[in-house]
Amino acid sequence: MLELRLIQGSLLKKVLEAIKDLVTEANFDCSATGFSLQAMDSSHVALVALLLRSEGFDHYRCDRNLSMGINLNNMSKMLRCAGPEDIITIKGDDGTDTVTFMFESQKQDKISDFEMKLMDIDSEHLGIPDAEYQAIVRMPSAEFARICKDLGSIGDTVVISVTKEGVKFFTRGDVGSANIVCRQNTSVDKPEDSTVIEMNEPVSLTFALRYMNSFTKATTLSEVVTISLSSELPVVVEYKIAEMGYIRFYLAPKIED
């Protein structure tokens, strides 16, 4: 028996919009810890890891660990039928091949049940150990999205370099090149507007902008994005989901031939 009630149902809607273009099918795992997902894109270049902790739900019942294979496009279609203020409850049962999404209006005067078919998905879980990163950049998520969008109109790849001067985003394409530097900036009143750079060592890595631009679909989930970089590791682009958990995107770098 599974019953997860989320007052702020719009969070789930936003999560789906953030990942459905990167990953088409995935297993949602439900345990005492929370509602989670780990899935790679079809080319195994990028990975999304989602955690919505059980404490963040208004009601959380998960009698035993359950994995639900879901077509994310279909789930997104159903969640789009929930109003922006609706409370969403996810209901499932062991041994059934469906999941039900219940939408309740704030005034409780409209209740909708959407039943969706589940599917069998071979899960390929990657073990991702905790790592020390050479540089961690925290910046406004909207600023990062703007940079990725702007650079994506010039080139296909972005070189992200962190030095003590700041974080530099560079691209080159047929029409020319572009270079954007963001310096550390903590002197603002609103901490979410700050750019904070923690650097142990300078680092410079190249990534496909197509994926970065896909990750920025999570911008609506958090005002701040954290970018963790090490020369030996995929980049981690993390959006915290207020009081509930996170959505993390991992992206393998490109290397010079």
Binding site: S43, H44, V45, L126, G127, A252, P253, K254, D257
Partner: peptide, 14 residues
């Protein structure tokens, strides 16, 4: 020219 690495070059499958 650049080569796109895959995640399994860094992490192992559980």
């Amino acid at each position: 020219n650049e080569t796109q690495l895959r995640l399994d070059a860094f992490y192992t499958f559980n």
